[in-house]
């Protein structure tokens, strides 16, 4: 490894600060934009000349946004819970049990991860219209489940492989019931893996635009990313720039909070399957 030298450390600090600045820049810009009132929006400067909460008042009075926010939260949370529950069962079976078809499940999941999402939009659009799932919560939850399942199964499988399962048997021999062995020995090791996977699934559902813009048509089930594309200004002659900025800041808050709290877990989740075996 390179010898520690003050000059090199200094350079690294400098580059680190630069990287952090570039990363934060567009976010700071969105925040700044969202506080610009009136004509300030078109001042073509980074900062507002006066700060105003007007844009937040506007978006929270707008059904298009509040309904979309409700849909985003509901749909993403439900999809996350179901996807992680199903994937946990599958990953447990893949790691702990011998049965034909294991390899097929893993490879099938990998293949689905390669699907361009737009490729299944046509058939789903057609089918959802026929069976009444078009523009419903379920109509979005189902594709979110199928497209996060591969990621969940792979991540959980690689985490579960690291759990020393023999401890479960040891606890049983020591007189613990099956439930106790699971509750006190296995669960504490498995829960962080499940939580990490849940965050990654939530990010996917929260981020989705393709399905939401294609499989919904009203406020009933349209999520925020798609709703942003349909924003209009306060009057039809006004650009929706400020409202979009405020709404963007609002939907970024949960993400930033999750990242700040679970930074280590998310990194472990992203890198889990990629380098081992």
């Amino acid at each position: 490894m390179s010898q520690p030298s003050p000059a090199r450390d200094g350079a690294r600090v400098l580059v680190s600060v630069l990287v952090i600045a570039i990363t934060v820049l567009p976010l700071a810009w969105m925040v700044s934009l969202s506080f610009k009132g009136g004509d300030d929006i078109n001042n073509a400067k980074f900062l507002p000349s006066s700060w105003s909460w007007d844009n937040y008042r506007t978006v929270f009075k707008n059904d298009l946004f509040t309904d979309a926010l409700r849909n985003s939260i509901g749909i993403s949370l439900i999809a996350t819970v179901i996807a992680v529950a199903c994937a946990t069962g599958t990953a447990y079976a893949l790691v702990r049990m011998e049965f034909p078809g294991k390899r097929l499940i893993l490879l099938g999941a990998l293949a689905i991860a390669m699907f361009p999402t737009i490729a299944v939009v046509g058939p789903l659009f057609d089918m959802w219209r026929r069976i009444g799932l078009f523009d419903t919560w379920i109509g979005l939850i189902l594709p979110y489940l199928s497209f996060t399942m591969p990621l969940s199964i792979w991540t959980l499988t690689s985490f579960f492989k690291q759990i020393p399962w023999a401890l479960e048997d040891a606890a049983r021999i020591d007189g613990a019931s099956a439930w106790q062995a699971f509750r006190y020995v296995i669960a504490p090791m498995a829960v962080p893996a499940v939580l990490t996977t849940a965050i990654l699934v939530f990010f996917f559902a929260w981020n989705d635009f393709v399905f939401s813009v294609s499989l919904t048509s009203t406020n009933k089930s349209r999520t925020v990313p798609a709703a942003l594309a349909f924003f209009t200004g306060a009057s039809q002659f006004q650009q929706p720039t400020a409202a979009i900025a405020a709404a963007s800041v609002v939907v970024s808050i949960p993400v930033v909070v999750l990242v700040l709290i679970f930074q280590k877990r998310i990194v472990a989740g992203i890198t889990s399957g990629a380098v081992k075996e």
């Binding site: 635009f209 963007s248 970024s252 990242v259 990194v267």
Partner: peptide, 21 residues
Amino acid sequence: SLRTIVLIPYGIVTVVSAYAW
């Protein structure tokens, strides 16, 4: 701080990033 802050764009909605830029 580097590891945490660099991770933020990963979670930011693609549409939001596109509007910001």
